[in-house]
Design a protein around this nucleic acid. Structure first.
Length: 314
DNA sequence: CGCATTTGACCGTT
DNA sequence: AACGGTCAAATGCG
């Protein structure tokens, strides 16, 4: 096929990937349409279900192909296994090796850390701020060079009581329409979800733009907005255990293993499907979590590694 | 009063 | 030296 010829060169591969991404996007839009119109005159419920299954299969195929073909295409899609254990990360060492610090002017400065060079990251871009169901605590904010908005730094609230090392960085990267990039580092080991992940349509007025369908988790702290954010309280109050989330990964996050882990029984699919008992937090604007919704995030989530500050997206 | 956020300073990497 | 990431005292809030 022509695509295989194309795929043999770098530029050809990019084109193939581009086409695949377009195809996937179309499938996602179709999926969305199916969800929005649960029953029409022409299609009964079972046919609709079949259609959704088909769409899911198409999306899975796209994802599979993309993840395979782009394994070396770092600037298009990246999928890089963890380079080092979260607990061997420099930041971790800083926690428990304070004595290795240079003599500091301040009293025992715990922060003898190393800048993260390569570590497991998941990068997500959304048109709103996200709350992934975990309780985060903001520990810093910094202006970033050549960035119009500061970057906010969050760590898991259970860092100290459960030793959870998960952190994330949130940065607004675009004003109009607003766009936020959230970079997750390391796994949650606390297994504590403050609340269920949610999927909603953020901006119902922008109906024709499928990319507006995002994972919204109400608002996380806005990096450069009003600091008095109700989210703080939400994170605080809704902490509860979700024992089924054994992996420590938020259910909507692609595990570092691969996209294909979706097919596994303990994967996000299962978790989402079990969302029926979460209805109390799903508003009218919120999609219930179905198996198919997981694919929507593919537009926004990038699994990869960060080398320096270059991140890889498509 | 306890906990989360803010913010300036500190530290390691580049 | 610049930069990004983190710490921790100060502050705010419920």
């Amino acid at each position: 096929m022509e695509s295989s010829k194309l795929a043999s060169t770098a530029t050809g591969r990019r084109r193939v990937i581009g086409e695949l991404i377009l195809g996937r996007k179309s499938a996602q839009q179709l999926e969305d349409l199916l969800r929005k119109s649960p029953g029409t005159d022409d299609i009964d419920g079972s046919e609709m279900t079949s259609a959704r299954v088909l769409v899911n299969k198409i999306l899975d195929s796209y994802n599979q192909i993309l993840s395979n073909i782009s394994s070396g295409e770092s600037d298009v899609v990246s999928e890089v296994p963890a380079v080092d254990s979260p607990f061997l990360d420099g930041r971790r060492k800083s926690e428990d090796s304070g004595e290795s610090c240079k003599t500091s002017v301040r009293k025992d400065r715990r922060g003898c850390y190393k800048r993260r060079r390569t570590s497991e990251t998941r990068i997500r871009e959304t048109s709103t701020l996200i709350d992934d169901g975990h309780a985060w605590r903001k520990y810093g904010q910094k202006p970033i060079l050549h960035a119009t908005h500061p970057r906010s730094y969050f760590r898991c609230t259970h860092r100290f009581d459960h030793g959870c090392q998960a952190t994330k960085h949130v940065q607004k990267i675009q004003d109009d329409p607003p766009k936020f990039r959230t970079t997750y580092y390391d796994n949650h080991t606390c297994n504590n979800l403050s609340k269920s992940p949610q999927v909603i349509i953020m901006d119902p007025t922008a109906g024709d733009n499928s990319s507006n369908i995002i994972w919204n988790f109400e608002s996380q702290i806005e990096p450069d907005y009003e600091p008095n954010d109700p989210v703080k309280q939400e994170n605080k109050e809704k902490v509860q255990d979700f024992p089924h989330n054994k992996s420590g990964w938020p259910d909507y996050i692609i595990s570092p293993n691969h996209l294909t882990t979706f097919d596994q029984t303990s994967g996000p699919l299962t978790a989402f499907s079990s969302g029926s008992d979460l209805g109390d937090v799903i508003s009218s604007d919120v999609y219930s979590c179905t198996a198919s919704t997981r694919n929507m995030e593919m537009d926004h989530l990038i699994v990869g590694s960060v080398f320096g500050d270059d991140f890889l997206k498509y």
